[in-house]
């Protein structure tokens, strides 16, 4: 099998980035009028739309928890989002797993005790994917939750890092992801530096993990700055509207 050169002799990656360079992130909040909060996030060519409905009355009475809100994450991948068209059923194990990861990374951050007996729905729609779907989804969900005004202790920022040939690289794209690289996704609370999610599914030498963790942590901080700027701009815009 012919392998793709992932790293040029000069140390540049397939898309011309340096190893510790993120792709361009564009984010917008309040994109949907129907939802209580929404966000659209582009991470390079990965495009994700997030909508938050709630806190609202829990749909099933059996699910109600009397002293806090439950978080529900639904995940939808557009069939045309990948290179190969593949229909993923609603009960696809992989999707359910991802949804559960996202749910669990937000549970400690959202102050659920403020909304007893209710439910917060986070709906995610992946429109186009080019690597790093989980990180993009988590970042988009954070933005949508903030836009919905759900109380949270901190942002949740996620970033991936992987070992591309001989170098630790950040924010892998689809080509790098799919050619046998080991990849770590971590979600971090930038203020405290705590990690709410760390996930790796391939082989990696223990000595190399440290480097990846630091790199992904740096990435999370950078992503936080980008997201925070969007949120602040939006808040200023709203404040100005209120003042008039």
């Amino acid at each position: 099998m012919s392998r793709v050169e992932l790293l040029t002799p000069e140390g540049l990656r397939v898309d011309g980035r340096r190893p510790a360079e993120l792709r361009k992130i564009t984010s917008t909040t309040a994109v949907l009028s129907q939802a209580d909060g929404s966000a659209y996030l582009e991470h390079g060519n990965t495009k994700v739309l997030a909508a938050v409905y709630g806190p609202r009355e829990a749909r099933h009475r059996t699910l109600v928890v009397h002293d806090r809100a439950i978080i529900n994450v639904e995940f939808n991948i557009a069939p045309f989002s990948t290179g190969e068209r593949r229909r993923r059923g609603k009960n696809d194990k992989r999707l359910l797993e991802m949804a559960s990861f996202i749910k669990q990374s937000f549970e400690p951050v959202v102050i659920t005790t403020l909304y007893p007996r209710s439910q917060v729905d986070i709906y995610l729609q992946v429109i186009q994917q080019d690597g790093g779907v989980l990180q993009a989804c988590i970042n988009a969900a954070t933005m949508a939750l903030i836009d919905a005004g759900v109380a949270m202790t901190d942002y949740v920022c996620a970033c991936t890092a992987g070992w591309v040939e001989r170098e630790a690289a950040i924010d892998l794209n689809h080509i790098e992801e799919s050619s046998d690289t080991s990849e770590v996704t971590i979600a971090m609370l930038p203020k405290s530096g705590k990690v709410t999610l760390a996930q790796m599914e391939s082989r990696l030498h223990v000595d190399k993990l440290e480097a990846l963790f630091t790199l992904a942590g740096e990435g999370c901080k950078q992503i936080h700055q980008v997201l925070d700027r969007t949120i602040r701009n939006r808040a200023e815009e709203l404040a100005q509207k209120l003042a008039v």
Binding site: L32, L49, N76
Partner: peptide, 10 residues
Amino acid sequence: SPICSSAFRP
């Protein structure tokens, strides 16, 4: 999908 309106259920 439920993302587009609260009228649709997962």
